[in-house]
Amino acid sequence: MAAGGDHGSPDSYRSPLASRYASPEMCFVFSDRYKFRTWRQLWLWLAEAEQTLGLPITDEQIQEMKSNLENIDFKMAAEEEKRLRHDVMAHVHTFGHCCPKAAGIIHLGATSCYVGDNTDLIILRNALDLLLPKLARVISRLADFAKERASLPTLGFTHFQPAQLTTVGKRCCLWIQDLCMDLQNLKRVRDDLRFRGVKGTTGTQASFLQLFEGDDHKVEQLDKMVTEKAGFKRAFIITGQTYTRKVDIEVLSVLASLGASVHKICTDIRLLANLKEMEEPFEKQQIGSSAMPYKRNPMRSERCCSLARHLMTLVMDPLQTASVQWFERTLDDSANRRICLAEAFLTADTILNTLQNISEGLVVYPKVIERRIRQELPFMATENIIMAMVKAGGSRQDCHEKIRVLSQQAASVVKQEGGDNDLIERIQVDAYFSPIHSQLDHLLDPSSFTGRASQQVQRFLEEEVYPLLKPYESVMKVKAELCL
């Protein structure tokens, strides 16, 4: 049975990233139509530049190519590739079939990587351009969430054990800070992308030097003109047959890092959902379990974690691919890159769409948070109580021993009897502590235990987050809708 299948058929496997999760716009960027249309555009740009620099290419040939950029006979191309065992030459023939007058000058002087690699770089750039505003929107939604809850005390956790208090907004800023680093890295790697350009079979530009009869300047002009037509500021000066596969490492490393950030955020949300302090959106008709109707599973956060793990592992592909590119190139890269580049971007696209949807509907339960604080705060307040007693004339050592005994009794009630923490009640009825009984409410005010959390939130948002989001103001209103 021949390899390949009808990918629109229910009898043929289709990647869930495309069929179930990723956005239509990201799927289109990695589609065959987008790819092969870009090949034709690159052939047109090459012909236009070659004509401008004096090669015998007519206006009629150029116009014929322009008129057929979208006229792609995919069936013919597939048949040609089956016959020739070469995808680029299959599309040269297919393009030439609908451009008979231009057929002889299509791909003039070029090698397969002229269309293959340059198209990949265009796709990487455009895919990054799709991700950047999506990530900015996630940051914006979380920034709104953090600002609104900047002063809401909550129990902090280290080692997932109760620690000092923080605020809900401050905790959210930990998430935002990681995503801001990801946004900066995505922008950097996007701006650092260079075009492969017009380089020939081993990167020496020998074929173009021959076409222009040894004119170095025209060869350099050709490279520059096509690079500018493709919208790049610069091209690699040095290439082998391909652009260095280190570029793929750079791009997928940034995406993998984004995956790590999203995994951490969504894990926190899942843990908070278990504590009943916070939940992701839950639709009115949504079913959490087929057997347990009360369940409210954090399905979206779980999906993000599941896909983020996949995204983090994909960076190993370009690392290994770059390491086995012998001399000017081997074909070890080809099949692998067809999979890992598309999957990385479709996965990143999915987790950003999902995280935006989550961040637009996060639900906080202040009463649950308050109750958990009441359970733990008495123990945390013991040092403040000791200091207040010393100020009232008591002995630190005597007070410490009193607190120690009462704390152990209260802990026994919590752990052995399943009761509430009654340390404060014990202190309130103990005559030894009568000098500070009137101060206990103040000493137990949760806001006095959150330090500068709310001020940190305000400063972080104003100095770091809002300036970073400013270039994306025009796209901030787009909502994230999930079908599944």
Rank of each mutant, 00 (worst) to 15 (best):
P24I: 15
G240L: 01
P162D: 01
W175L: 04
R188S: 06
V88M: 07
R338K: 06
R374F: 07
N353I: 12
A49L: 01
L440R: 04
T244V: 04
A410C: 07
E48T: 07
Q63M: 13
L319G: 02
A411V: 09
F232K: 02
Q456L: 14
V226F: 00
L377I: 13
L311V: 08
Q210M: 07
K470Q: 13
I427W: 05
D268Y: 03
L108K: 01
F160K: 06
Q356V: 07
I436C: 06
D420H: 01
A388Y: 06
E383Q: 00
H217E: 11
K101Y: 09
K295F: 01
L331I: 12
M476L: 15
L469Y: 08
M389E: 06
M387V: 10
R188P: 00
L423S: 05
E464L: 06
K218T: 08
W39A: 10
T450R: 05
G96A: 12
L307C: 15
A411S: 09
V198T: 15
I62A: 05
V138F: 15
Y294N: 04
S257Q: 10
T244I: 03
L352T: 06
L44F: 06
W39I: 08
I269Y: 05
K276R: 08
L124Q: 09
Q221N: 12
M299H: 10
G240E: 02
M380E: 11
D144K: 15
V457F: 04
L84R: 12
A342Q: 10
Q286H: 02
L346P: 06
S261P: 04
T111W: 00
S454D: 14
E473G: 12
S289Y: 02
S207T: 15
C98S: 12
T227N: 08
K82I: 15
Y466C: 14
V198F: 02
H263P: 03
L174D: 11
A136W: 06
V29P: 01
R459F: 10
A102I: 09
V88G: 06
A322S: 09
A230N: 04
E481I: 09
R85D: 00
M181I: 13
S112Q: 00
E228T: 14
M380V: 03
S454L: 10
N357K: 05
D32P: 15
E148F: 12
T350Y: 14
R20F: 00
M278L: 14
A110D: 10
M389C: 09
A163E: 04
I427V: 14
A47H: 05
L275E: 05
R338P: 01
Q397D: 07
Q439V: 12
L186W: 07
K284G: 15
I265L: 15
R337L: 03
V168P: 05
H91P: 02
E401R: 12
K170V: 00
L174V: 14
E277R: 02
N126G: 13
V475Y: 08
L108C: 15
D349S: 12
M389W: 02
Q325S: 15
S151W: 10
L440N: 05
Y294F: 07
K187A: 14
V226N: 00
R234A: 13
F232G: 03
I123P: 02
E64H: 09
Q205T: 07
D216Y: 08
Y21Q: 01
I62M: 11
L155C: 03
E481D: 14
E462A: 12
G394A: 10
H91F: 06
T313N: 08
N357V: 09
A102V: 10
A348Y: 03
P293R: 01
A291C: 04
D87T: 00
T267K: 03
M89K: 01
Y13P: 13
T227V: 08
V405Q: 09
L211W: 06
Q205W: 00
T227H: 13
S112A: 04
L461P: 05
R303P: 00
V465T: 08
R452F: 08
L42R: 02
A127W: 00
R270T: 01
P56N: 11
V219S: 06
H263C: 14
R149G: 09
S9C: 15
G169V: 01
T111Y: 01
L179D: 06
H310W: 07
E376C: 04
A344Q: 05
Y365C: 12
E463I: 10
Q41T: 09
C483T: 12
S207C: 08
T58N: 12
L179N: 02
S323I: 02
A102P: 05
H97E: 12
T111M: 04
P24L: 12
L135Y: 07
L183K: 06
L272Q: 07
V457S: 06
T227I: 05
G418A: 06
E148S: 12
Q161Y: 00
N297E: 01
I358E: 07
Q456G: 06
R338E: 04
A453T: 11
L331D: 01
N126S: 14
E213S: 13
R245C: 00
Q164R: 01
V92I: 06
V219E: 00
R270M: 01
I424R: 15
R309I: 04
N185T: 11
C340R: 03
T202F: 01
E343F: 00
C304A: 15
K134W: 09
S31T: 12
L271T: 06
L469R: 04
D32S: 15
V262S: 15
S323V: 03
E481S: 15
L406Q: 07
K233R: 12
R40F: 00
Q286N: 02
